[in-house]
Simulated assay, not measured.
Amino acid sequence: MQPTSPAPLGSYVESWTPGPLTDEDPLATGPVAALSAALDLPGTVAEAGDPLPPLWHWLHFLTWPAQRDLGADGHPLDGHFLPPLPDRQRMWAGGRCEITEPLRLGTPAVRVSSLASVTAKRGRTGELLFVTERREFRQGGRTCLVEEQDIVYRSGRSTGQHPSAVDESALPRPDDPWQLPLRPDPPLLFRFSALTANAHRIHYDAPYCRDEEGYPGLVVHGPLLALLMLELPRRRAPARQVRSLSYRLRHPAFAGEALAACGTPAGDHAELRVATHREERHATAEVTFA
C-alpha cells in the first residue's frame, strides 16, 4: 500500500472563519515598570497618564489558559485565532503598526481583534500557513493604533538548521550610528515570558530546546528582539514620535549570545536591526516618525 500524502494545509482552514474578538484592559502601570526593571532602564517610573512606548502594549491584554489546555511544548492547544492544524507548530514572522496617538497608562483601553488573511505557501521546509491577525486599540472612543501580526504555522514537528553551539565570547562589531548592546541570559528570558504570558518551553527549558527542537540553547523571544530595536529611537531620538513601524524576525538568537540592536536614522525614518557575530540581521525593522 502506498503511503498517503498529507492533506494540504489550506484544506484544514477552508471553513475556518473566526469572528472578531473584543477585549478590555485597564492598562495598569505595573507591567511597564516590570519590563523597565528587566531591561535595566535607568530611573524609569511608570505613572498613570504616561504614554506606552511603541509595542509595549504586548504587556497588556494577556490571556492565561488553564494548565490542562497547554500542549507538550507549552503553547496553548487551542485559541480563537489558532488555525485547526494537526500537531501545529507556530513561528512569529513579523508585523506592522500604525500609531495615531500613543495609548496612555491608567486609562482603560479596548482591543478589537480580527482575522485579516490566511494564505498557504510552500517554503524550503515544506508547506506553511501564513495567518495575519489585525488588532485595533481604542481609548476614550478613539482608535489610537492599529497592528497586524504575521504568524507562520506548519503541521508536524520539525527542526530547522541551527548552530550546534553558541559562542558566548564573540561580539558583534557593527558601525551603525545607533547601537544598544544586550546579552540576554536565562533570568531575562524567564522574566519576559512571565510578562507576556508566554509558556513556550523554548524560552526556559534548555533540555527541551536541544532534544526536541534542535536548538543549541534557550531561544530569545522574537518580540523581545523587536522591542530591543524600538528602544533605539526611544533612547536616541526621544522627542520624535514613532508614527508607523514594521518589523521582521529572520533568524533565532540564543541566551548567552552578545546582541547589538543597531540603527541608522535618515530624515523621517530609521532602519533598525539586531546583529550578532553570526548574523547581521536576526531581526529588522523600519520606523517612520511623525
Rank of each mutant, 00 (worst) to 15 (best):
Y208V: 06
R191M: 11
D23C: 15
A226N: 10
Q139Y: 01
A46E: 00
L82E: 07
A37G: 08
A258Y: 06
L35H: 02
G95A: 05
L188Q: 12
W64Y: 14
V152C: 02
L55G: 06
V274G: 07
T196G: 12
L55R: 13
P6A: 12
E133Q: 13
E98A: 14
L259V: 12
P163F: 08
L230R: 07
E101L: 11
H282G: 04
V274N: 04
N198W: 02
H162P: 00
H162L: 11
H75F: 14
A290T: 13
L259Q: 05
H269M: 10
H269T: 14
S5A: 14
H200Y: 02
R96W: 13
T100P: 10
V32R: 13
L105A: 03
L230E: 06
A275Y: 10
V166N: 02
E168W: 14
F254Q: 10
L115K: 05
P84I: 07
R201Q: 04
R236F: 05
R122D: 13
V131G: 06
E231H: 12
E168C: 15
A255Q: 02
Q241S: 15
T284G: 14
E257W: 01
A283Y: 08
R250Q: 15
L228R: 01
E148M: 05
P31S: 02
L85C: 03
P3D: 02
G94N: 02
D167E: 08
D73T: 07
P233R: 02
E24S: 10
I202T: 02
Y153C: 01
L103R: 01
V219G: 09
H269A: 15
P172Y: 07
P108L: 00
P51H: 02
H80Q: 06
D78M: 13
P31I: 04
E98N: 07
E257L: 00
F137L: 05
H282T: 13
L103D: 07
V242G: 12
T4M: 05
Q149S: 12
L180V: 04
R201A: 08
G19I: 08
L249E: 11
R134I: 04
E24L: 14
T44N: 13
M229Y: 13
P6K: 01
F81D: 05
A120D: 10
V220L: 00
E24K: 07
E47K: 10
P172W: 08
P65S: 01
L82T: 14
L52M: 04
L41M: 15
P265N: 00
V287A: 08
P54R: 07
G222C: 00
E133C: 09
L128A: 11
R183I: 04
G95H: 03
G156Y: 12
R183A: 08
G217M: 08
P174Y: 01
L39H: 11
D25F: 09
S113C: 03
T119H: 05
P76T: 05
G256R: 11
C144L: 15
L39F: 10
E24V: 12
G71H: 07
V118N: 03
R104D: 06
A93V: 03
V152R: 02
Q89C: 09
